[in-house]
Computed example of a mutant assay.
Amino acid sequence: MLTLGGWWYGIGDTPLHGACPGPDRCPHEPDVGEGAVAVDAYLKGLAPDALLVRVHCHV
């Protein structure tokens, strides 16, 4: 999941902020808590007109 704040969340991965070179050098706090419950709450809290897109990308 990519949040509006620029955070990438992958299943089982450490959140990664898009503006930082890596998790070990990122001074920012993630905008979503840990686990599926936090992700669900984030998605439910988006504006009603928010567009959700699912993209599967493997690099």
Rank of each mutant, 00 (worst) to 15 (best):
A41P: 13
W7M: 05
V39P: 02
V53K: 03
A50I: 05
A19C: 02
P15A: 09
G18I: 09
V32S: 00
H58K: 10
G10Y: 00
G22H: 04
A41T: 14
V32M: 00
L52F: 01
M1W: 04
A50C: 10
K44C: 07
W8N: 10
R54I: 10
C26K: 06
A47E: 11
V37M: 10
G22A: 10
W7R: 05
G12F: 02
C26Q: 07
H58V: 12
G5Q: 08
Y42L: 08
Y9F: 12
C26A: 06
L4M: 10
G10T: 02
H28I: 03
G33K: 14
P27F: 01
C57D: 12
G6V: 04
R54D: 13
C26Y: 04
H58M: 09
V37A: 15
P21E: 07
P15N: 10
H58I: 08
A50D: 08
D31I: 09
G5D: 08
K44E: 11
D49W: 06
P23F: 07
L52H: 04
G33L: 14
C20A: 07
V59A: 12
A41W: 05
M1H: 11
P21V: 05
R54Y: 08
G6S: 06
V55L: 13
E29I: 08
G5P: 01
G18Y: 08
L16N: 03
D13K: 03
Y42R: 07
A50R: 07
P27R: 02
P23I: 13
V39A: 15
Y42H: 08
V39H: 10
C26W: 04
G35N: 11
V39R: 12
C26D: 15
C26H: 07
